[in-house]
Design a protein around this nucleic acid. Structure first.
Lengths: 200, 200
DNA sequence: CGTAACCTTCTAACGTTGTTAGCATGGCTG
DNA sequence: CAGCCATGCTAACAACGTTAGAAGGTTACG
């Protein structure tokens, strides 16, 4: 009976369409427009149908967060191919800030506290992994031994988040925030290099 | 006619009481509990009375943001009296992160995007001023000439905000976030010192 | 082929939110 | 003392997230 398979496919399909519609609404109209009825209308259904695919709005928003991080990783792909590790570091810093500026509402939801901290951390895992890889290759390349690797990683992550938030809300212009991110990374890395125990 | 003066005093008084009640509710029960009716009940009034003192909820929340920054400055007062500029810098970094951890809901509202960017920036002005003063005395003390002072200031501000957010939501424990803030400042300052054009 | 089960989808509704309108009441002003 | 104005209330509206119950079409089985 192929029917049940088709049904499952349709179910997954509408689930996907709901997420896509939600992302579209969020990006174009902001978080206040992201309502269940609005989403349901966009996929030409009535509101309760959404609850057949997501337990509640938070679960749906969590999907948007995951989508956001996937999109972020995708947009960072090109920058990640830069060969020189120092340039790559700075480039990824400014590009991640650029992402926040180009997807302000999505980024807002990504850093919102309505979603569970653990879940959000899980969604951000690839990004944090990327940062870890950056830091290891950088420290290897410069023979820098970081006193506390995890600490350095969290500092980079926190710094980028903070500067990205600055650039998202309009506290400073986004292109300025991108420059800030590069400078901050530059200074941090220089600081860690100055920590070198022996050589000078 | 002293009556009008008394009336004005009463008006200002209930306005104050509303703000205090709102802060209390926000800090103890979180942002979801911060509703107009809940606030009105706390001051033993009905909901519409709140609108005689605030145009809408956003205006009230803006007052909470301002209150939050005043409270932050007050709690940072003691740390600001540390004589040694380097220790003062690190201390203020960790203490500002501690504030975010001890007033998570208040800090959340302070960095929320529902409030206008300009207004929030105005509320944060004293804090930014404090950072500027820190940076100037620090650079003077170490004969460091920052290539772009405003840039360095924004970097410090953004970095502290980001790490504070890390410590607020529970991504990392708050005492760890405080240490992160100190290390990040330490590294940033060391990086800027390494920028010294001539001496070594 | 027909009937029973089921899955899907809708309309209606509940409770809560921010916010406004309209009315009472009571103290100040002339 | 008469009138007015500020103050406070109740009631209501629209929109929100969410749930219940009914209706209709599709599938499976006798």
């Amino acid at each position: 009976m192929p029917t049940s398979a088709r049904r499952a496919r349709e179910r997954a399909s509408t689930r996907e369409r709901i997420i896509e519609a939600a992302v579209h609404i969020l990006e174009n109209e902001g978080v206040t427009a992201l309502t269940i009825r609005r989403i349901a209308t966009a996929v030409e259904y009535s509101a309760p149908v959404v609850y057949q695919h997501f337990a509640n709005k938070d679960a749906l928003v969590l999907e948007l967060v995951a989508h956001g991080y996937r999109l972020m990783m995708a947009e960072l792909q090109q920058a990640a191919e830069e060969a020189d590790i120092d340039r790559r570091f700075l480039l990824l810093a400014s590009e991640s800030v650029r992402f926040a500026g180009e997807h302000p509402h999505l980024y807002e939801v990504m850093n919102d506290n309505t979603v569970d901290a653990d879940e959000r951390l899980r969604a951000a895992a690839p990004m944090i992994g990327l940062l870890r890889e950056l830091l290891t290759t950088w420290s290897d390349a410069h023979d820098v031994i970081l006193a506390d690797f995890d600490e350095a990683c969290d500092i980079v992550w926190g710094t980028l988040s903070g500067i990205a938030s600055l650039g998202r809300i309009g506290t400073v212009g986004n292109e300025r925030a991108q420059q800030l991110a590069q400078r901050a990374m530059h200074t941090l890395l220089r600081g860690w290099r100055a920590d070198l125990p022996v050589n000078a």
